[in-house]
């Protein structure tokens, strides 16, 4: 509820945006790439939530998915390999008024950026993180990533990969202060959009792993799940997602799951034959680092100068 007449009047002038207002350029992703579905879902979110482009930032690392900020007509930072999360944290810390999204890939997040990933979960800053997991390094033309299924033949593993794939859901659920973990697949747009929306509305570190097809380098990898609706398990709960009649008709394998039940979430995350889709875990009460460390002190020029001088004085000989 608006508190004053002024607020109410100003509300009348709120701007409405169209989906096209968030589109920037033509994506260079391969035709058929799952990144397109994620891009559409996120642009729909921005439109529906009327996010102001100048108040929205997309931060990415390196990889196919990390081209994402280029295609959003908002602020964006295409940063260093594996470093999307610490940079996004810096943005959020300095400008808590901005809506910050992170787009990262299975290599960017789970390999070179793994350390940042673990600590970003623990910090629980209010970021919405999309892990575009296509289970392969696509930009550099097919090398095995940490999430490639065992036996994946690639340029670095010509005889098939030797290790079991890392499960980003289980890892995330194992870190202290985790507050939101969900899984989506790019080929069910309705559920992808609902999950993206729930992640955006969660106040804290919202981690969404999106299983994404790579038609160029692993074209058949996800076919068993895509072509057999029974291998997709839709999670629903009164405190999480509600299933539409249309989805329920196609995807009969459904599970009621309380998102506060961590043990069950870990069990669900470990499923191999079945692919769970929905919110595995959500706890709204986990403290957020930027709020815990928030200071009401105004950053005046004098304060900044004093801070700099104090730091530089440490190195005075």
């Amino acid at each position: 509820m608006k508190s004053s007449a002024t607020d109410c009047l100003l509300e009348l002038y709120d701007e409405q945006h169209e989906l096209e207002d968030y589109q920037s350029g033509v994506p260079r992703w391969c035709t058929g790439c799952g990144d397109n579905a994620i891009l559409t879902a996120v642009q729909r979110l921005c439109r529906d939530e009327a996010l102001r482009p100048e108040k929205t930032v997309f931060v990415s690392g390196i990889g196919c998915s990390s081209r994402f900020p280029h295609y959003m007509k908002t602020y964006g930072l295409h940063t260093l390999h594996g470093r999307a999360l610490p940079i996004a944290e810096g943005v959020k810390m300095a400008r808590p008024d901005l809506t910050v999204f992170v787009n990262t890939g299975d290599g960017d997040c789970c390999s070179i950026g793994a350390a940042h990933w673990i600590h970003a979960i623990r910090y629980n800053m209010n970021l919405t993180v999309f892990l575009h997991d296509n289970q392969i390094y696509g930009l550099t033309k097919k090398q095995a990533s940490p999430t490639s299924p065992i036996g994946t033949k690639s340029n670095t593993t010509p005889r098939g990969s030797y290790l079991d794939a890392l499960n980003p859901l289980s890892v995330t659920l194992g870190v202290a202060n985790v507050s939101f973990v969900a899984q989506a697949v790019d080929w069910i747009p309705e559920s992808l959009f609902e999950i993206v929306k729930a992640a955006y509305h969660h106040k804290g570190f919202s981690f969404v792993r999106i299983l994404q097809r790579c038609p160029e380098w692993l074209p058949k990898s996800l076919d068993p799940w895509m072509h057999d609706p029974d291998r997709i398990q839709l999670l629903h709960h009164e405190n999480a997602l509600h299933l539409s009649a249309g989805l329920s008709k196609v995807y009969k394998n459904q599970l009621e799951h309380d998102p506060l039940d961590m043990n069950r979430a870990r069990e669900i995350a470990s499923s191999e034959h079945i692919c769970p889709v929905g919110i595995l875990y959500q706890n709204k009460d986990v403290p957020r680092y930027e709020e815990t460390r928030h200071s009401n002190v105004l950053r005046t020029n004098d304060l900044v100068r004093k801070g700099f001088e104090a730091e530089l004085d440490k190195y005075t000989v």
Binding site: E18, L19, P27, T31, G32, C33, G34, N36, A37, L39, T40, Q43, R44, D186, W187, I188, P189, E190, P215, G246
Partner: peptide, 25 residues
């Protein structure tokens, strides 16, 4: 349309026959 994942295959094949709606499907 509700199940379209916006992969661009069809619109690249024939942009007049296939098009995207307001939700880019």
């Amino acid at each position: 349309s509700a199940r379209c994942s916006t992969c661009n295959e069809c619109v690249q094949l024939n942009g007049k026959m296939f098009a995207y709606d307001g939700n880019k499907q």
